[in-house]
Design a protein around this nucleic acid. Structure first.
Lengths: 204, 204
DNA sequence: GGTCACCGATGACGTTTGTCATCGAGAACT
DNA sequence: AGTTCTCGATGACAAACGTCATCGGTGACC
């Protein structure tokens, strides 16, 4: 164990971040050399300190964990990315893997697992939580076209059609068509149910 | 510092719980004597180990942190309750204080604060995150009647009126009236926006 | 070059909503 | 005893919403 694995830890929740940092530091082959409170800081800090593994919370301000991973695979190819998340939706896992993430864990996993996955990822391996993987396979791919997903996301606030149309720079009729399509594909009775379903699947 | 403060730590996220436990244990006047993965276990464990302070995550399976606090103030009056949460909504703080909680912190606060608050609460004091307190004061009380809140909660899934009426055992017309009232009080354009607002305020 | 999917739009139609006035019963407070 | 609030309901009306057929334009793919 010549030099310990250099880790970046990114999580917007101060309490959680410092607790995890202390915990990882207890392992003598791991050392947390940088912490970040949001996605932007995570990217700059990872590059600056040339970390071996980035442990990223999925939901963060400015850039989410997946967006950070995308940038890091470009800017710092030697760095492995591990995503940790409270709410593991199937769609997130797919996007994460597409972004070059090699570790994906829910926060419900045990502490020893995290350390183990950090080591695995550092050695070039992959580890995805088995339960999440099963869900992702069962859920399949998003049936929504990019535009449908956009409009559905705008509909998530509960705003009326005209507002959505204005914000999307579309005609109200077009918005209704897209939403109608999405509802059919998601088997929902109205757009709000469609939003709920798409949310649960991680498609928006 | 004769005997250390005995702490129960309840959080359904394994990773977070163990990390926090380790962190709190590092303080030599604090000791985590019990951990729980959900509200029910939290109550039984707190009673069994006669803990001095219960550190409770707000969102947990079976019983949320506030419900646990309510039971503990009855079953174990000497025990102080501290709620820790990711999403601090104004309404939650009010309900928590009403339930006898004496510490309320978002997970974004620093680690030293948590330890300090545990000590404060153990000595009978109170501590509420200043920002959350300000929000709660600004937000005011819920303008919704109990029934309006019920119906609004049922509307949260996005189900159509008839479904809501069936599940609430009400006439569809009555449901529409309640929702209309709620929308007026919350200044929302439709019930889904009303749901979003009530959610943000912690009123449902 | 034809097929197909996606984007964007329009118009018509029927249904679901939201709004409002109004009613009656019970409970609470003055 | 009167006022006020919540609960529950009805009916009528207008606006918003969901559905469908249809159109033109673009880019991908065989």
């Amino acid at each position: 164990m010549s030099t310990p694995i250099r880790i970046l830890l990114a999580d917007d929740e101060h309490l959680i971040r410092t607790a995890l940092a202390q915990m990882l530091d207890l392992e003598d082959d791991l050392t947390v050399v940088a912490e970040a409170v949001d996605g932007e800081h995570a990217v700059t800090a990872a590059v600056k300190y040339e970390v071996d593994v980035a442990v990223l919370d999925l939901q963060m301000p400015k850039l989410d964990g997946i967006a950070v991973a995308e940038r890091l695979t470009e800017l710092l190819p030697g760095c492995g990315c591990v995503i940790v998340t409270s709410h593991g939706r199937p769609g997130h896992l797919k996007r994460a893997l597409a972004a070059g993430v090699r570790g994906f864990l829910p926060k419900t996993t045990s502490a020893v697992t995290l350390a183990a996955v950090v080591r695995t990822v550092h050695e070039g391996g992959r580890h995805v939580d088995p339960e999440l993987a099963a869900e992702a396979i069962a859920a399949g791919d998003s049936p929504l076209t990019p535009r449908e997903a956009d409009v559905l996301e705008l509909a998530a606030t509960g705003a009326p059609i005209d507002d959505i149309a204005a914000r999307a720079s579309l005609s109200p009729g077009t918005v209704r068509n897209y939403l109608s399509n999405a509802m059919m594909k998601l088997d929902a009775a109205n757009r709000h149910e469609a939003v709920a379903i798409a949310r649960r699947m991680g498609w928006i």
